[in-house]
Structure formats: C-alpha cells, structure tokens
Simulated scan of single mutants.
Amino acid sequence: MSHTDLSQPVAGLDIGSRRFLHAGPLRWLRSFGWAVALFFIFGLAIAAVQLWPGMAIKGEGALRALATLGLCVVAYGLYAGIVRLAEGRWPSELALRPAIAELLIGLLIGAVMLSVVVGLLVGLGLYEVSGPRAASPWGMIIVGISSGFMEELVLRAIVLRLLMRAFGAWPALVLSAALFGALHLTNPNASPMAAIAIAVEAGLMLAAFYMLTGRIWMSVGVHAAWNFAQGWIWGARVSGIEVKQSLYLSNPKPGAPDWLSGGDFGPEASVPAMVVGTLVAVVVLYWAWKKGNFRAAPDAPKVEAV
C-alpha cells in the first residue's frame, strides 16, 4: 500500500502506549504531564530556531534559511530520541518515507487556501491589493520554515497527540486548538476575536491533517505555505506582524469593519478566513473520522527495555 494513499482504513493513530504512556492507573495524568514537559522543552527549541540564525548570520538570505532548517532538523532528531527513550517507539508521526509527498501536498493546500481567502476579501470589497513589485522572499521563507516545522511539532506531535492519549480525540482537538489561539494573543494587534479565529480556522484545520494521516508533514506544509502566501505573495499582515518584503501589498479598505476584514491583525482574523479554514477542517476531520483515526491504535504488547 502506498504511504500517501489516504483512503485506506487503519487501526487508529499511533499516539504511544509503552513506558511512560503504558496502560494503567493515572495514565491520563502521566500523558498530560509528559505533554507539559515536552511543551516547555520544545518551546525553548522554538526560541532557538527563531533567534539563533538571526544572531549568527546577517541578513535574511539563503544561508539563514538553511541554518533555520538545519536547527529544525536537529530539533526533530532530539524529539525522536526523547520519544524513543521515554515511549519505547520511533515516532511514526515523523515517518520519513511519506514526508516529501505530504509536505508538497500541504504546501499546495496552504497556498491555495490563503489565496482563496484574499480573493474573497477583495471580492467582498474589504481589501485592496496593489503590485506586483520586486521583493526578496527569503524573510518569509524563514518564517514559513520556523513556524511550519516547529509549531507543528509542538502543537500537533506533542500537544494534540498526548492530549488525545490523556482525554480522547475531541477534548484533544478542542484544547489544542484553544491553546494555539491563545498563544497568538501575544502577537501585535491581537484581540480575543483574533485568537478565537486562529483557534477555529487554523487550530482545528491543522490538527485535522494530523488526524487524517497520523503524521505532521501535511500540517507542516499547510502552515508554512499559509504564512508564506499571506506574507510574501499577498503582502498582508501575518498574525498581526507587518511584512516588509512582498510581491503584492494587501490592506483592508478604509471603513471596512475590523470584525469582517480582520483589521490590523490581518486576514487570519477575518470572516472569510474563518469560513474557509472551518470548511476545510470539517471535511478533513470527517475524512479522518471515517478512517477510524479518532481512536488510538491498540496498545502495543509489553516489551523489555532496550
């Protein structure tokens, strides 16, 4: 069976069932505690990926992008090693064989989704777009790499997976999406409405692709391409952050209601983004449910430590 065939039934998601996550008393508490510990460990990794290349390499060119990608690879290797030691398995959520195909599919989906959102904003008379113009894409490529790879590792491979182990699929989806939205409250121009929009349209949608495949690669691609298309292609604010270099320039029209256009936070807080993201989330989550991926794979038999 092809690793990219998403239509075949599976026996549930591999979310860990050995060692620290073994069946028995207080499994939910052990799973939750493990999620918290990994969240803080790899939260520091996110900071390193975002800060170190900029401190060590001047400018926002290809070398800095490669350094950022290299640190992401190191972080993924660290995660795989920790999971192997603490959970007694190599993480199937990072399976390499389907990675390239699923990344490419995700990149296409993310770019198309964001472009549809901008098209709706323009069509509804909420946004104006000017350009094209000469601009370097490297800054937004770096943002796409760091946000796509690292945020998906933390929010999906760690938080969503381990909350599912602790509480089940639906609570995990709701809690991880809410956390994803809440984390964006620290961004410039953020508001409770923007956080809710991020939670609904992106938190659930990105989680859906993990639930569908059991791997994070498609979520990584969607997340990275969404940010890149929003920032470099269309020149809109990315989660409240103004973009310096972009092919086009997109802004809300004067007088456009903030609740409808997203205001200074950008298209992610707009009604069209919520509609598009939610529709995709519902379709993909339904597909994942039909596959049986709203349940965990059966517990692995006990094995001696190696």
Rank of each mutant, 00 (worst) to 15 (best):
V74D: 03
R133L: 01
S92R: 12
V73E: 05
L121W: 13
L126G: 15
L78Y: 01
L114W: 13
V129Q: 05
G88D: 12
T68P: 05
G59H: 08
G77F: 00
L71A: 11
P91D: 11
V112R: 09
S115E: 08
L78T: 08
I100N: 03
Y127V: 10
M55F: 11
K58H: 10
R89N: 03
E102F: 10
L126T: 12
G144A: 15
L66K: 02
L121G: 15
A75C: 14
G119I: 14
L78C: 12
A62V: 15
L121I: 09
C72L: 05
A80H: 02
G81M: 06
L66C: 08
P98G: 04
C72R: 03
V122N: 07
S136L: 02
V73H: 00
L124P: 07
L107V: 11
G144E: 07
R133H: 08
L104M: 06
A80K: 02
L85C: 00
L114V: 13
V112P: 02
A56M: 14
A75M: 15
K58D: 13
G110Y: 06
S115G: 13
L69W: 10
V129D: 04
W90P: 00
I109H: 08
S115I: 10
G123V: 07
V117P: 13
L85D: 00
G144N: 07
M113K: 05
I82K: 01
G70S: 12
R97Y: 07
G81A: 15
T68G: 15
P98D: 05
L107S: 03
